[in-house]
């Protein structure tokens, strides 16, 4: 896998092993451009060489803004390529290559598993300050999603978590199934990052900003920071990383679902 990576200049093994995730390669190109290729898909070129995915496929996306954002990620690399900062590129690669070889149903099942252990549904019984904070911050989001999707979620302080009714699962499953494969890949990414199904739904529906969703996901940690102080190399580091991943996932879902709407309209016409 690694040998193949060095052979293909535009190919990086993001998901092959941990070391390559942190490895940095020298920047080997000057100009980054995008062009519209076969089937109206947008491709990214590095010095006239077309960008490829780790799986060796041609890198092509349906959305022009997404292609521009990916090109900007490559363009902003300085002397070495820092793949761990290129979240949109990574998400596109995952959607194109589908390294885990899963279909839509399998992704939906995997994503909905997070509903059983949703961050915002698990409550503490002490300390009192945190109990109140969780109630004040998380309850409005749960109320919002229950009203918006006409479902029942609730919260619990037991170790087993709340019992989610089957109807709630079915509703979310249907909503997830209405997304295309690309958008679903992004949505599952956000769900796994925030360890919640409720927060990403609120984020995609533009009910929350990324900063707020990340804050809600890290509520207990924020409480501890307020009490004991913030440590830059641990707390801020994690917070910024989670923010950038969540923002990338959210943007990816929005851009990919927009592109599919345009396609549908064209087909109807």
């Amino acid at each position: 896998m690694l040998r193949q990576a060095t052979r293909l200049c535009t190919h990086f093994p993001v998901r092959s092993c941990t070391r390559s995730y942190l490895s940095e390669r020298k920047k080997f190109y000057q100009d980054v451009s995008i062009s519209q290729g076969e089937g109206g898909l947008f491709e990214v070129s590095l010095d006239r060489r077309k960008l490829k995915t780790p799986g060796g496929k041609l890198f092509a996306v349906a959305s022009e803004p997404l292609a521009i954002a990916v090109a900007t990620e490559w363009d902003s690399q300085k002397d070495t390529l820092k793949f761990y900062t290129m979240h949109l590129t990574t998400l596109c690669n995952t959607a194109i290559d589908n390294p885990t070889q899963r279909n839509k149903e399998q992704i939906i099942t995997a994503a909905l598993k997070y509903l059983e252990t949703d961050t915002v549904c698990y409550r503490v019984e002490e300390p009192q300050g945190l109990v109140e904070l969780q109630k004040n911050e998380w309850d409005p989001v749960i109320q919002w999603i229950e009203k918006r999707y006409d479902v029942e979620i609730g919260s619990s302080s037991s170790i087993a978590g709340p019992t989610i009714p089957q109807r709630t699962r079915d509703t979310f499953s249907q909503h997830l199934a209405s997304y295309g494969f690309w958008a679903l890949t992004g949505l599952e990414f956000v769900i796994t990052q925030l360890k919640s199904v409720v927060l990403p739904f609120a984020l995609i529906d533009r009910h929350l900003t990324v900063e707020k969703a990340v804050l809600l996901s890290r509520l207990e940690e924020e409480y501890q920071i307020q009490r004991w102080g913030s440590v830059e190399w641990a707390h801020d580091y994690d917070c910024q990383e989670l923010r950038s991943r969540t923002a990338a996932g959210t943007l990816f879902v929005h851009l990919c679902s927009e592109a599919s709407t345009i396609k549908r309209k064209l087909l109807q016409g």
Partner: peptide
């Protein structure tokens, strides 16, 4: 969201 992505990536 894009602003948040750019800013947090830079700070991270």
């Amino acid at each position: 969201t894009y602003l948040c992505l750019l800013r947090s990536t830079r700070m991270h």
